[in-house]
Nucleic acid binder design. Structure first.
Lengths: 192, 192
DNA sequence: GTCTATAATACGATAGAC
DNA sequence: GTCTATCGTATTATAGAC
């Protein structure tokens, strides 16, 4: 076993934790599982993180932060609702192919069972951005008039359910093959 | 404490378990919590159910069975995709108002963390029914041509995300007030 | 069938050497 | 900073009286 830099040790622990949390759930993952998978000792894990929940929290925050930064870098330079929404959908579907673990972690982990106060990721910043773009779209006449929250829900719900179908193995095609068709369907629900 | 019939005892245990599983999650609910909430002794719980997982399994099967029976009684007498889909949406939104615990239990419990083999409820029978109706709709010309699985995903995803918004307290209006508007949005995505 | 008291164990977390 | 060995406790499940 080669000796790692402390930062690499920390990252290894988080990578293993994310995979195991997704595969078996937080409560079904015990510290010795993380020890086996990461090949980092339990003492070292408790050196980097105060306890199991603290590890989960760091993982949650860093994953969400990365996602938001990358999402914004895909959309910020674009103008118009349709372009922005399309870019988000392309980004999500690509991420789901490249890193299904991260996608599943964000979409389906019951973070509120770990941190009692928590809001589901899909209703937080990314979702609010979509809602605001739709509001702008109504104002500019690109989107049919209605309740923006409802429209954002219907739009993103449709997009994300297809991701779920893929992650569950129900949908066989790679997401990039169906991304355009799916976007057209979801866009039709709110387009003027 | 009045003496209950055995069948009432069993039902009380399941009602408490469902509420607690939804509120704090399966793994955060310990047997003594169910004892306190149901006011049934631990010995009696273990008389009716072999163990905690067996209780969860009975709860899952009976909840799903009830849902399917009621859903079919809402749709079986109707003809045409649009009518059937509308009836399902009305049924789901009404159920969500009447029994949000049951709705949340079905939509968001990670049943596969409890029963390793499990399929998420929303991808099982009810979802397949929607997919088949859409197939029929394409054949009859009511629905735009495309991949039925994808269209069922976009349609039901949109419908269910609004339920999620309601259950999470993000959407303030009662669902019956927005059910028609939501159906119109989701229907537009797949209508010819 | 229902209850109380208790056993068995699995887990998170710590102590202390290197 | 990393490791191994171990503790304390919370939780599931059982035993046995009524």
């Amino acid at each position: 076993m080669v000796r790692l830099k402390p930062e690499e040790t920390r990252q290894r622990i988080m990578d293993s934790a994310q995979r195991l949390f997704v595969e078996r759930g937080y409560f079904n993952t015990v510290i010795p599982d993380i020890v086996r998978d990461s090949e980092i000792s339990i003492g070292s894990i408790y050196h980097h993180f105060a306890n199991k929940q603290d590890l989960a929290k760091a993982l949650y925050q860093e994953t969400l932060q990365t996602f938001l930064r990358e999402m914004h870098s895909c959309t910020d330079h674009l103008t118009g609702v349709k372009n922005k929404l399309n870019a988000v959908v392309q980004f999500i579907y690509t991420l789901c192919e490249d890193n299904p673990i991260q996608m599943e972690y964000m979409l389906f982990m019951r973070h509120n069972e770990i941190f009692p106060e928590h809001i589901p990721i899909c209703l937080s910043e990314p979702f609010k951005a979509v809602e605001e773009w739709i509001e702008d779209g109504i104002a500019s006449g690109d989107v049919t008039p209605g309740i923006p929250l409802l429209m954002a829900g219907v739009f993103m719900g449709g997009i994300l359910k297809v991701v779920e179908l893929k992650l569950r193995g129900v949908l066989k095609q790679p997401l990039p093959e169906v991304v355009n068709q799916t976007f057209v369907l979801a866009w039709r629900s709110i387009a003027k």
